[in-house]
Structure formats: C-alpha cells, structure tokens
Computed example of a mutant assay.
Amino acid sequence: MLNFVLPFAIGIFCLALLLCLGRLLRGPSLVDRILALDTLSVNALALLILLGIYFQTTLYFEAALVIAMLGFAGTVVMAKFLSRGDIAE
C-alpha cells in the first residue's frame, strides 16, 4: 500500500507546486504573490519530507528544516515590509 500512496502524494504535491508557481507569476496583487510564495515553501517542505520517506534518507529532512526556517523568516520580512513600508527600523 505504501508503494502506491507515496508516489501518488509526491505527484499531488508536485501539482500543488506548479499551481502555486502559476499564482506567484500571475497574482493580481502583491499580497497574493506573497501568499503564493509562502504556500510554495510549505509545499516544497512537504515534498522534501515525502521524498525523504520514499528514499529512506535523512538528507531530505535536513533540507526541509532549512526551507522551513527560510520560509518563515521570508514571510515575516515580507509581512513587515507590507505593513510598514520598510524592513529596518
């Protein structure tokens, strides 16, 4: 059962990445593009975790941890920029 579910889930997350990339490129506003970028990082994180389970290696989990930290920091910086107009105080 696991041999069917993991490739299916990986394919679904690849599709979700493509859809988020489309919203990122044609988003009507800056807020839509920021949300698409945040969703793109979460989907990439989930895809890396699934690939780590599929290939049975811990290297993908470490990469997922780095993407999670960078995605969170990037979202906070972009939200601060939108609310205040600058990043540094």
Rank of each mutant, 00 (worst) to 15 (best):
L35Q: 08
V66Y: 07
L37C: 09
L30E: 14
L65S: 02
C20G: 03
L45I: 09
F13C: 04
V66M: 10
L51G: 06
A73P: 00
C14Y: 05
L70Q: 00
T57V: 11
L37I: 08
M69R: 00
V76Q: 01
L47G: 05
L82W: 04
G27C: 09
L37T: 11
G22T: 08
L59R: 10
G27V: 10
L17E: 10
A36S: 15
A44V: 07
I49G: 08
L51R: 02
R23K: 11
R33P: 04
L24T: 01
Q56N: 13
L25R: 09
L48A: 10
L40R: 00
A64L: 04
M69Y: 02
Q56P: 00
A36F: 08
V66E: 00
G71Q: 03
R84I: 00
L17K: 00
L24Q: 02
A73K: 01
M78Q: 04
K80S: 10
V66G: 00
R26F: 14
I49H: 04
A46M: 12
L35S: 08
D38N: 15
G22F: 14
A46L: 13
G52T: 09
T39C: 05
A73F: 11
I49S: 13
R84Y: 12
A46I: 15
G22M: 11
L24G: 02
D38Q: 13
A64G: 03
F55N: 10
T57N: 13
A68S: 15
R33D: 05
Q56M: 09
V42S: 08
G27W: 12
M69V: 12
F81S: 10
L19E: 07
T39K: 01
L17C: 11
L50C: 06
L15F: 15
L18V: 10
T57Y: 04
I53R: 06
F61L: 15
G52H: 07
L65A: 10
F81L: 15
C20Y: 03
L40I: 02
L15C: 12
C14I: 14
L59Q: 12
N43R: 04
T57C: 05
L17D: 05
G22L: 14
L70Y: 05
F61R: 01
L40T: 07
R33I: 02
F61Q: 04
C14G: 05
Y60Q: 11
L25S: 08
A64I: 02
E62N: 13
A46Y: 03
L37S: 14
T57A: 14
C20A: 10
A73Y: 04
A46D: 01
F55R: 12
L30V: 14
L70M: 11
L59W: 15
D32L: 02
S83G: 02
A68V: 09
V42E: 02
V77Q: 01
L47K: 02
A36E: 08
V77H: 00
T75G: 06
L48T: 04
L21Q: 03
G52K: 08
L24R: 01
I34Q: 11
N43D: 15
